[in-house]
Amino acid sequence: MTSAGGGQEQRIEELADEAGTTVRNIRLYQERGLLQPPVRRGRTGFYGPAHKQRLALILRLLDRGYTFATIEELLIAQRHGLTLTQLLEVESVRADRRTAGPRRRRLPKAGVEAVTGFELPEELLDRGTAIGLVSEFSSADHFLADDYMFKLFRELIMLGVDEDGLDRIGTMFMEGQSMAAQAITVLVETLRDSGVSQAVIEKRVTGILPGAGAAARVIFLSAVQTLLTEKHGFRKA
């Protein structure tokens, strides 16, 4: 079958046979975000020349001993035209983050652009500042120093989300976190109205935060699953 661009399309079995790998491996590479999903026509997926080239690259890198994680980083660098130095700088921040505990660390000179490939909007950085994610006002260098944000943006980029999409997702994420954090104000004000001292309030509020964070995560995942099922036709988990 010939694609609109003139390239030959293949089913997954044909692609695997020609590349010298297995269908299971191809599906694994897709699950890892290394290989783009096929073009669906009905219940059948078709793979074009771009899939074939990417698969060949993945297999060459694996044959040379690269891990999936390293291949992920190399593909991000390729997509956004990053230099090897920039890529290594970002990786060093991740290593520092793992060994330094929860303390935020400053990204290298490449800053946020070494991860996203573009400059984040001021409005998004302002929202990050408002909830303490950014340690300096409108400082893009600090935005992804938080490991969770780094991983979130990295995964979105690997999935092919463009600059506008990342901006929208980031904005909604920040607004949601800011709104949720305001709920703690009710607890603080209730305790103050009851005449509880500042020291006791701080102790009680700090003690409740881990449980509140876990509850917020469960609520978020439940709401997302409902949205995916009802609006997007996902199967119930």
Rank of each mutant, 00 (worst) to 15 (best):
K203M: 10
R27E: 02
I58H: 07
A4D: 11
G233I: 12
L227W: 09
R32K: 09
T190P: 00
A145L: 01
H80V: 04
P210V: 12
G20Y: 04
I208W: 05
L61N: 01
D162N: 13
G65E: 00
P210R: 10
L59I: 14
Q225W: 01
L227Y: 11
E91V: 15
Y29V: 05
A114V: 10
L28M: 02
G20D: 04
T206S: 14
M174K: 12
E73K: 01
L84E: 14
A56D: 06
G101S: 06
A214S: 15
H51P: 01
Q36P: 00
R154V: 14
P37A: 07
T229E: 08
G33I: 03
L120P: 01
R79V: 13
A50C: 00
L221C: 09
G128Y: 04
A212W: 12
D141Y: 13
G132P: 01
G48H: 02
E14V: 12
R60N: 04
A212V: 14
F220K: 08
Q53N: 04
P108I: 12
I157M: 09
R204K: 05
I201S: 10
G128C: 05
Q10A: 15
G233R: 09
R154I: 09
Q53G: 03
A19C: 03
R235Q: 04
G81V: 04
Q198C: 00
D147V: 12
G5A: 12
G6Y: 04
D193S: 08
L82P: 04
F137K: 15
F150L: 11
A237M: 03
E202N: 11
E175S: 14
V218S: 11
M174E: 11
R103D: 06
R43K: 14
A114R: 07
D162E: 07
G176M: 13
Q198L: 04
E122V: 14
E123T: 09
V134K: 00
E136A: 14
E136K: 11
V218T: 14
K203C: 05
Q177Y: 11
Q177G: 15
D63T: 11
A237Q: 03
L59H: 08
V39M: 07
T2A: 01
G207F: 02
L166T: 07
Q182K: 15
L28K: 00
K203P: 00
Y148K: 12
L82G: 08
R105W: 01
Q53F: 00
G117W: 09
K203Y: 06
K236D: 04
K203F: 08
L187Q: 06
E89F: 05
L82A: 11
A95Q: 01
